[in-house]
Design a binder for these strands. Sequence first.
DNA 1: ATCGAACGAACTAACGGTCGTTAGGTTGTA
DNA 2: TACAACCTAACGACCGTTAGTTCGTTCGAT
Lengths: 194, 194
Amino acid sequence: MTRKPAIEDVALQLFASEGFEGASLGRIADAVGIRKPSIYAHFRSKEDLFLCVFKRTLRRKQYMLLRHILQDTERPFEETLRELVERLMDDHESDAETRFLLRMCYFPPSALHDQVMALVNPFFAQAELGLIRLLEQPVHSERLRPECAQEAALAYLTVLDGVMAEAIYTTRAKAARRLEAIWPVYCRGVLIAE
Amino acid sequence: MTRKPAIEDVALQLFASEGFEGASLGRIADAVGIRKPSIYAHFRSKEDLFLCVFKRTLRRKQYMLLRHILQDTERPFEETLRELVERLMDDHESDAETRFLLRMCYFPPSALHDQVMALVNPFFAQAELGLIRLLEQPVHSERLRPECAQEAALAYLTVLDGVMAEAIYTTRAKAARRLEAIWPVYCRGVLIAE
DNA sequence: ATCGAACGAACTAACGGTCGTTAGGTTGTA
DNA sequence: TACAACCTAACGACCGTTAGTTCGTTCGAT
């Protein structure tokens, strides 16, 4: 019965709340209930542990994102997109995985900056492409202002990050206020006026 | 000839690029050109050094922000607000102060979380109030959709953070793309249709 | 003569990491 | 069925390094 998954889970939590440099292997081991050298039975180094956790998290989130976006393409896209923001706000509050991912995308450990960005860039590119694919569906693009699918996708990502920013530095409740304020603005801005 | 300002400047830069835990007093001292114990002639501890730098930065940014927002209230507010985003993108690229402030608002050193937030919250509240005060000027509010100054202010802050998010994790150029995409959306969303 | 900035030396604690060993389960062979 | 061989997770002890911090002293300007 290996403690490997437990190590990854605990590392994720501590990396999310203390950062890479702030989370020591000793405290990770303590929280798992093992001794520090035992970690090296499963990971070659602290950096290796970090990258394993990071890749796993990226994989899961990518799957979740694309599934959410492309799962019901008939539904009005505003509903799908707004629900996605709300879901990410919930996730940010309840699971450390989202907090970890956001933190490390913003401020990766500086020694691993290039490696992390080489993973993150395709992730963001995929998300943007998925959004554009959704908005270019005829059902939706005929409701959008002309030639505007890519702009609407970019604008949405901006809204998403802006709301999540508030979730990071204050609370879910205040982030929800931001969403209430900007969502009608976003919709009026990208939809054809009736 | 005291090295105190130099220490603060270097600490700012290293805190901005490596984080609080990632920046050591030894490397700060090296970059200043002094020895590590000399820092203690000016600051009681690493945390004290951090808080001094943080307060100074907050003070300066607050002054800059309010000045920018309320300096020419006759000018169309879209111009003022868009220029502010562009200015912050420039600052983020060129001066470490903006990078430091953003990083530490998002992810303060966990031991100092409460102290930092007690400083940051009034800062954000002031910024929001300044924006509302601008938008409630009759010249502007008559062009806004009715009863919408506060929403327009909140939405603007969301846009701002969303654009800055891209500046943080990629580049100024990609952040500018976001601004291009969202700015017409924002304006259409808050202004009365003509 | 005084005062503060800066220093060398040194402290304790903690860091990431290595090594040789142990305990428990699985497998190979007879 | 028996038992040795093997594997692997976990461990205690410990390595060299660096962290933040303290202390007593020096040095230059007032």
